[in-house]
Design a protein around this nucleic acid. Structure first.
Lengths: 127, 127
DNA sequence: TTCAAAATAATAATAATTATTATTTTTAGT
DNA sequence: ACTAAAAATAATAATTATTATTATTTTGAA
């Protein structure tokens, strides 16, 4: 029984912030940005709401570098790029190949439902 | 100036342990296994050596679930599978498509050098 | 308007990982 | 083999990212 989600000012601000930007921020980055408007918001509130939104399938959690989690305002499947120099996470504007999942399913005994692809290298500004 | 790597009993045991298994263990898992032979080995030693070996390009660090890092004894590029139920990480025995990198390069301004692909779903035993 | 359920801020706690430090190993040069 | 500098270690403290706790406030249905 997942607890029904009740409106909150903070959650709306968090989701709006995430939707307004394209840098796939960490919880900390969202927190710093939102503090400007809601000065006494708590970092734990940001974490809690991002988790809630991800669990509800409204946003996506990205595990890019083994350290901090990043978040993506959209759930439409697409590929990402991680700059190994500055740590920025960006979108790759190409159509995901769903042949990957069928191919992998044919080569393994697992029930495969998802494929995450993360490219890495250096971004324009770091080159 | 990367410090030259000097031999150590512990590092050899860590690398051998990793090579002897196919479950892509975490540092903690390697630690527990090695304690049997080297009872007073320190967890920090396992972390330090796994990092060293990964930095030297001898092993691979896998960031699978946003929590604990896993390690792979080989550096040959191949795809992995994460069971969302038990957390196990396994190999997928299919040829990596290098078309992915060229395709992504054509669709982005980044210098892309690597692509990691992680499938997820449920493994045989969890189904 | 009332009231229970959910959310919050503040903070404590936890988990994974890395840093510190005094001591021990390793190894290159005698 | 002997010595000494560099690197590695064990033990442990510290750090970072994240989650749990708790007393208080907000939300929303009756």
């Amino acid at each position: 029984m997942p607890a029904p989600i009740k409106y909150s000012h903070q959650r709306e601000a968090i989701l709006n912030n995430l939707k307004s930007r394209y840098d796939h921020p960490t919880a900390e980055m969202v927190f710093q940005d939102i503090r400007v408007d809601i000065p006494n918001i708590s970092l734990a509130t940001v974490y809690r709401n991002l988790n809630q939104l991800a669990d509800a399938g409204i946003i996506t959690r990205l595990s890019c570098n083994g350290k901090t989690d990043h978040f993506d305002a959209t759930t439409k499947p697409h590929y990402h790029f991680l700059c190994t120099s500055c740590g920025a996470v960006k979108d790759i504007d190409m159509k995901p190949m769903d042949s990957l999942i069928t191919e992998a399913s044919n080569h393994s005994p697992y029930k495969i439902t998802d494929a995450t692809v993360l490219f890495s290298g250096t971004c324009e500004t770091c080159q």
